[in-house]
Nucleic acid binder design. Structure first.
Length: 283
DNA sequence: CTTATGACCTGCAAGC
DNA sequence: TGCTTGCAGGTCATAA
């Protein structure tokens, strides 16, 4: 489950099971899901067993579970990753790649399953800095729902770029947490064509765009994220409801809710962009 | 430095 | 029915 709202839904779901829990056992079922870990899967397992976990954190689409000592279990869901909280010995989940058994704060045991169809996601144990941020996450910009997020600074950096405004929104080193769905939704709300160069976006419209980004992420979070199929689910395997509220993403062939023109899908940078041909013209 | 492109994977839906 | 093709919520390394 990929973008910020979906990852935050997962983090919230993990809080009761993992905060102050202790790792009892770890089993790597598919080596490929251990990514950017400094060592093999046996080393990964040994790095976790017996250790105490702290409250799960998130920046953008990166999730991590701080460990006692200056390390953290970093989780990235990639395109199709899931973190499922199950009873120990529950029915198997499809595409389960890594299993952790933990004893939670209240003394109950849970089986945490990392499931991932496409294996673009993964886990690693990494060192953290003085702020508790893993080295793997250090290069990721603050996300729009972080207290320290600075919209004016992001707009200033956007406005000196020649690249398209959509590429900027997807650049996790400029602003994190946005992916293809929420980029298209925010651009629709802001009535901007995705190919508009950053330097052609006025300061006022840039700030408006970021306000739309924050609003669409907040609303999606309240709805439990966007799910089109069973790939994108919370820790209990349940889907979110924000797909009903999409105005542009995946709406090609349907009328624009604002002006009635037919939403189009266009190939761009090895993926799809959705826009209203009337409200989001290239100027 | 910035920017663009392909690699990494599995599986589903649509079209023939 | 079976085959092929296109498509999918991301990130990173590499090249220009």
């Amino acid at each position: 489950m990929p973008e910020l709202p979906e990852v935050e839904v997962v983090r919230l779901g993990l809080l009761p099971a993992l905060t102050d829990a202790r790792v009892l056992s770890v089993e790597v079922l598919d080596e490929r899901s251990i990514r950017r870990h400094d060592g093999d899967s046996a080393h990964f397992e040994a790095s976790l067993v017996g250790r105490r976990m702290r409250e799960p954190r998130r920046r953008g689409k990166f999730l991590w579970v701080p460990l006692e000592g200056a390390e953290a279990l970093v989780v990235h869901l990639g395109m199709s990753g899931q973190m499922l909280v199950r009873e120990v010995g529950a029915m198997p989940d499809r595409h389960a790649r890594i299993r952790l058994v933990v004893e939670s704060r209240d003394g109950r045991e849970y089986e945490i399953r990392f499931a991932d169809q496409r294996i673009f996601g993964g886990m690693a144990v990494r060192a953290v800095d003085g702020e508790g941020v893993p080295d793997q996450v250090a290069h990721i910009a603050l996300d729009p729902i972080d207290d320290a997020f600075d919209p004016a600074a992001v707009v200033a950096r956007l406005r000196v770029r020649s690249q398209s405004v959509k590429a900027a929104l997807l650049d996790q080193q400029l602003i994190s947490g946005i992916g293809n769905i929420y980029a298209d939704e925010a651009l629709w709300r802001a009535r901007l064509h995705y190919l508009t160069p950053g330097k052609r976006v006025s300061e006022r419209r840039g700030l408006e765009l970021l306000a739309h980004v924050q609003d669409v992420l907040d609303r999606a979070l309240v709805e439990g994220g966007t799910s089109f199929d069973t790939q994108y689910v919370n820790v209990n395997g349940e889907s979110g409801y924000f797909a009903h509220s999409l105005n542009a993403y995946g709406q090609h062939g349907k009328p624009c809710p604002r002006c009635g023109a037919i939403i189009v899908r266009e190939k761009w940078s090895n993926r799809s962009s959705h826009r209203c041909p009337k409200c989001q013209r290239r100027r």
